[in-house]
């Protein structure tokens, strides 16, 4: 994967494939703490396996496959950048919860990439899913949701450009 936006896209795809109808994405930057955090949570059925199994690259819930690389690759990238990745149950939506964190200024942190394109792709091809995107850069917070998302994506572009 070239950048974080592709890992994010992969995690969102997991939620869609699990049958989620509400998906909440969060990108949070705390410059003072040198922290970048990405979260995805949904109202799907939740992880059918233990968190340990979910992060095992040789474990997958997909029939006919022997590997499940998405979460483990994301974890590897986050750990390489001084962070980590955890999975569990969403307290707000009841489904799966994925949280990745890493050092904002860590030299091994992948670039943020085109988060707007990842969000736009999933919104455009899954009109039945209610997406919410919450962005935070210190005290500056932006929330994009539902049908207004395509028109408000420029706010997301401005956010990601500020981090480049």
């Amino acid at each position: 994967m070239h950048d974080l936006s592709l890992y994010l896209l992969d995690i969102i795809e997991n939620s869609v494939r699990a049958g989620a109808t509400r998906i909440s994405v969060g990108v949070t930057v705390e410059r003072a703490a040198d922290s970048l955090e990405i979260t995805v949570e949904d109202d799907g059925p939740g992880l059918p396996v233990t968190p340990h199994e979910a992060l095992d690259p040789f474990f997958t819930t997909k029939k006919g496959k022997k590997t499940g690389l998405g979460l483990s690759l994301f974890r590897q990238a986050a750990e390489a950048a001084g962070g980590g990745l955890s999975v569990g149950r969403s307290a707000d939506l009841g489904g799966a919860f994925v949280r990745a964190w890493m050092g904002l200024g860590n030299v091994d942190r992948p670039p943020l990439g085109d988060v707007a394109a990842s969000i736009f792709t999933m919104v455009a091809t899954n009109p039945e899913v209610d997406f919410v995107v919450d962005l935070a850069d210190g005290d500056k917070r932006t929330s994009l949701r539902g049908s207004e998302l395509p028109q408000r994506l420029p706010a997301l572009v401005a956010y990601q450009e500020a981090l480049t």
Partner: peptide, 10 residues
């Protein structure tokens, strides 16, 4: 740029 994205979104 935001303009490019807005154009695509519209």
């Amino acid at each position: 740029s935001p303009d490019q994205l807005l154009a695509r979104a519209q």
